[in-house]
């Protein structure tokens, strides 16, 4: 749109701007570009600094100077005492995240497929699921803790926390699937049905392979959102805590580079999850092109 505009001669003579359109457009681009790059630095610097500081020497503190470079704090993390052992919470968080990913994936495919069936009350159904994004973790977690207390249910990471986590991850998977189905061409299913396939076979053999990118997306949402969830876990996890809770507990006790090490490690885990999904999508596209 920029640059192609031409000002009429008369208007230009009447109110001659300081710069012409092209120059102004480039100036805007530069200003906005600087702002964007500045924000990206602002967003990434703390996490990069945290990762850097996690490699500081045994006498290093929580800020610069690092007093040498070592894996000391990672070793501390590995042979930790029972008091601040991060390994069991890490294991629980990982298992919980996998469970949430699978459940989110199944439920969001089923829900999105249901939406395509155009049933009565589907508007309400849509809003009900969206409520999971809108309702903040603080309220959902607190409310669920109240329900458990009244009904006398014991909270635990693999029961109540799982239930609440999925209510947070499901809407993201659901929206991903809806977006994929929006671009889906139903003629392909029609062809399969005309050729005598049952609806289930058509779904399994035609629909599912085409919407597989959405399925992978919902898995990623299920995994990463559950793995990092704090507010909902806080109220519904019980005595055996998950990783974010352990991190917060450690922060309350003392801020050490050990915490930076665990932060760097979880960030890398999240990045690996994204990378795995990207590779899966890439492989998928290649396989389909063949």
């Amino acid at each position: 749109m920029d640059g192609t505009a031409y000002a009429p001669g008369r208007a230009r003579a009447a109110r001659r701007p300081l710069l012409d359109h092209r120059a102004r457009s480039r100036l805007t681009a530069w200003v906005l570009g600087t702002l964007t790059v500045g924000f990206l630095l602002y967003q990434w610097l703390p996490i990069l600094t945290l990762s850097l500081l996690s490699f500081s020497g045994p006498t290093g503190g929580t800020t610069f100077p690092m007093n040498g470079v070592s894996l000391h704090w990672y070793r501390e993390l590995w042979d930790a005492s029972i008091m601040n052992d991060f390994k069991p919470p890490l294991g629980r968080s990982f298992v919980l995240a996998i469970a949430c990913a699978v459940t989110t994936c199944l439920l969001s495919v089923a829900s999105a497929q249901a939406m395509r069936g155009r049933f009565r009350g589907q508007g309400l159904f849509f809003y009900l699921i969206l409520l999971g994004i809108m309702a903040p973790g603080l309220l959902v977690g607190f409310g669920f803790a109240l329900v458990c207390r009244i009904l006398g249910i014991e909270t635990a990471w693999n029961t109540t926390a799982f239930l609440v986590h999925v209510s947070w991850t499901l809407p993201f998977g659901f929206l991903t699937m809806l977006a994929i189905f929006n671009r889906f061409d139903p003629k392909l299913e029609e062809a399969a049905l005309t050729l005598g396939a049952s609806r289930w076979t058509a779904f399994r053999r035609i629909t599912l392979p085409i919407v597989l990118p959405g399925v992978i997306g919902s898995l990623l949402f299920g995994f990463s959102l559950s793995y990092d969830e704090f507010a909902r876990s806080m109220f519904t996890t019980g005595a055996d805590i998950t990783l974010p809770l352990a991190v917060m507990a450690q922060l309350d006790r003392q801020l050490t580079p050990e915490l930076f090490a665990i932060g760097a490690a979880t960030t890398v885990t999240s990045l690996l999850a994204i990378l795995a999904c990207t590779f899966a999508l890439w492989g998928l596209r290649r396989a389909q092109r063949r």
Binding site: P46, I47, T49, L220, G263
Partner: peptide, 16 residues
């Protein structure tokens, strides 16, 4: 960063 932990990202601001 949306897919990484918001808690860790908040903690990352502390040394800053």
């Amino acid at each position: 960063p949306f897919w990484t932990s918001a808690l860790i990202r908040a903690i990352a601001w502390v040394p800053f």
